[in-house]
Amino acid sequence: MELSRRDAIGALAAIGVGTGAAAYAVDTGGDAATAPVETLVAVAEVVYPSELSGVEPFVETFAERRAAGDDDHARGVRAAVETMDDRAEAWYDAAFADLAAEDRDSLLREMGVDTAAEVPDGSTAERVRYYVVNDLLMALYASPTGGELVGLENPRGHPGGTDSYRRGPRQ
């Protein structure tokens, strides 16, 4: 299934950084930092299901709003990504995005991210889970395409109207 720009915008709307409602962004006049898009795409390739296509533009749009701003959340994402890169360098001698997919998967598991609960001010694994893995999972599964993968084209958090709840499964 193909992710679209609409999905990214939808997901962003769902999590408070959609068009207009720049609720996270506290503009301090400084230059916005660059989002660590490459690393986020590299994580998405591991945590998203393999039947999805269009992951890169989806994550790019998402990251621009979610990880580039000068707000606590974006800073949290960048700090978590930095930690992942440090670990990748220390344990695998390469930046996270340059690792093979199996190694990325292993690294996240070796860091304990798979078994960690998300906690925004928690341990390293808990923060990576919150700011990186779960941010990406929420963006996907609150989008129409992500929802559709599961059989629910209007998932919680997506303003998908009031028709879909009335439709039967085969329509």
Binding site: T115, L137, Y141, A142, V150
Partner: peptide, 15 residues
Amino acid sequence: PVELAMTGDDWGDDL
């Protein structure tokens, strides 16, 4: 599903 996706030890196709 979106809430369930953020809990558990799995990701990718298993999730």
